[in-house]
Amino acid sequence: MPDLDLAVSSPAEAFAVLREGNARFVQGKRLHPNQDADRRSAVAPRQRPFAVLFGCSDSRLAAEIIFDRGLGDLFVVRTAGHVAGPEVLGSIEYGVSVLGAPLVVVLGHDSCGAVTAASIADHDGNAPAGYLGDVVERVMPSVLSARAAGHTDIDAFVRTHIRRTVDGLVGRSVLLAAEVAAGRCAVVGLSYRLAEGTVDMVNSHGPVPTASDNPHQ
């Protein structure tokens, strides 16, 4: 039976649903909710996702699969290295202010290609050609920040980039900052582990459990 629209009204509830879905995915016990013909018909006239998922474009990071959700559950925005330009910020604001999602998740992952490319460019002094160079340029401040803090491995750079992305969304979007301050929305950074399928909290703004409450930490 499809679970249709969940009774999710708070950031903490939305976050709990995602964590429960990821646990099912890791354990091989996915329920595949909201993925049938009835759900397709139900959401055709409207959508009310319970979370905005802003993630890396990596093909192994399919949000509805790793969080065991279905049609109409997640409003997904993806770019290489989860770099956030005006179009991304506008899309996230749409998901929160128009669609009413109480949670925004920034989803990065270990061994990220964009972060690796930025690390190599920083080391060699040569950025990739074309628009890929623009992606690397947007990731570079995270690599430099991580190096300044004494980190040397890619996964530490990834976590720094996730943290900076979360902080940047709240810092750049007046609308998002206001929703977080009012307790109506939270922005959470998660790092996905490709081999295990688990997600670890990196940082957050708003009313959700802290990183210290994460069982994978």
Results as ranks from 00 to 15, higher is better:
G70P: 00
R46Y: 13
D213W: 11
T210R: 15
R78D: 00
D155F: 10
V199H: 09
R184K: 15
P209G: 06
A156P: 03
I66D: 04
Q217S: 13
P209H: 11
S57G: 11
P141K: 03
S97P: 00
A156V: 02
P11L: 08
E196D: 14
S191T: 06
A37Y: 01
V83A: 03
V188S: 06
G81K: 08
D134A: 09
P45E: 09
V17W: 06
H205A: 07
H205M: 08
E87H: 15
T165Y: 02
T165D: 00
F157I: 11
F67Y: 10
A178M: 10
G95N: 05
F75L: 01
A12M: 09
D68I: 02
V77N: 12
A7M: 09
T160M: 13
A186V: 11
I162S: 04
D122H: 14
P49S: 00
V106D: 07
Y131M: 13
A211C: 08
T210Y: 13
G90N: 09
A114P: 00
N34S: 01
E87A: 15
H205C: 06
G168R: 10
E87R: 14
Q47R: 01
G70Y: 05
L176W: 08
A51I: 09
R163C: 00
P215T: 01
L31F: 06
G72M: 04
A127F: 14
A127N: 13
H32Y: 14
L107M: 07
D73V: 02
A62V: 13
D73P: 02
R46E: 13
D3Q: 06
M1C: 08
D122F: 10
Q27E: 14
A177C: 03
N214V: 07
V88K: 02
D155L: 03
S111A: 15
Q35F: 04
H109S: 01
S212A: 14
A12F: 08
L53G: 04
R48P: 00
L89I: 14
S145Q: 06
I65T: 08
L99W: 05
N203A: 12
H123P: 00
L74R: 05
R39N: 09
Q27R: 14
L53K: 02
V96P: 07
L18H: 04
L89H: 03
V106Q: 07
V199D: 10
V202E: 11
L132A: 04
I120K: 07
G81T: 01
A62K: 11
Q35D: 08
I154V: 14
D68V: 00
A14W: 15
R193V: 04
F54T: 07
R46W: 11
V115E: 06
T116E: 15
S10Q: 12
D3E: 11
A114E: 05
V43F: 02
H82L: 05
P207S: 12
G95Q: 05
L53N: 09
G28L: 00
T198R: 10
A44K: 07
H216Q: 13
A195F: 03
S111R: 15
V105L: 08
A114S: 13
A118I: 01
F75S: 01
R159D: 15
P11I: 08
H151F: 14
D73L: 03
A42P: 12
L71E: 11
A51C: 08
L4C: 02
S145L: 05
A42N: 07
V106W: 00
F50E: 10
V202M: 10
L175K: 13
P141F: 04
C112V: 05
L74N: 03
F54E: 05
Y94T: 06
P45D: 04
V83L: 03
L18C: 05
H82R: 09
V188G: 06
